[in-house]
């Protein structure tokens, strides 16, 4: 059995096996948000339905976080290591994400795939967050 670490937030993670992100789509105008939310930011109606977002997309922009962010971020017990972050275009929505990748290999348009990412919250408790990693062959 794998670790029983819980998802970081039920409005962010729709399922853990396989990992999928939760979003919401407006029944009126089709706007897709991440994470799931109740109000449509485009047409201002409360007609959002919860959906699972696609697990693959292409890199839209990125950078590297070279210094430790302030709380509520908590560094791993082994100490802070720089990590890349970016936005990944999933088609109907572009989502912000940690990236599990060699930053030197990243380009706008790089094909990326959703992966689980263990994070620490208050007092070092592990939770399952998400990241995107370069997609290596195979299909979704």
């Amino acid at each position: 059995m794998s670790s029983p670490a819980p998802p970081i937030d039920a409005n962010v993670i729709a399922s853990l096996d396989p990992i999928r992100l939760a979003g919401a789509r407006c029944a009126e105008c089709g706007t897709t948000t991440f994470p799931a939310q109740a109000d449509c930011p485009r047409c201002a109606r409360r007609t959002m339905n919860r959906i699972e977002l696609p697990a693959e997309g292409v890199l839209w922009t990125w950078t590297t976080q070279t210094f430790q962010p302030k709380a509520p971020y908590a560094a791993p017990s082994t100490g802070f290591e720089p990590f890349p972050v970016g936005y990944v275009d999933l088609g109907d929505v572009i989502v912000e994400a940690r990236l599990e990748a060699d930053p030197e290999a990243l380009r706008v348009g790089t094909r990326m795939r959703l992966v689980p990412l263990t994070l620490l919250v208050d007092g070092g408790q592990p939770v399952i967050g998400y990241a995107f990693a370069p997609a290596t062959g195979g299909s979704a």
Binding site: D9, P35, Y73, V85, R98
Partner: peptide
């Protein structure tokens, strides 16, 4: 945002 956003290391203006 929920705390998840900061916990994920995304709450940084310079990013």
């Amino acid at each position: 945002h929920g705390d998840w956003y900061g916990q994920s290391g995304l709450m940084v203006t310079t990013q």
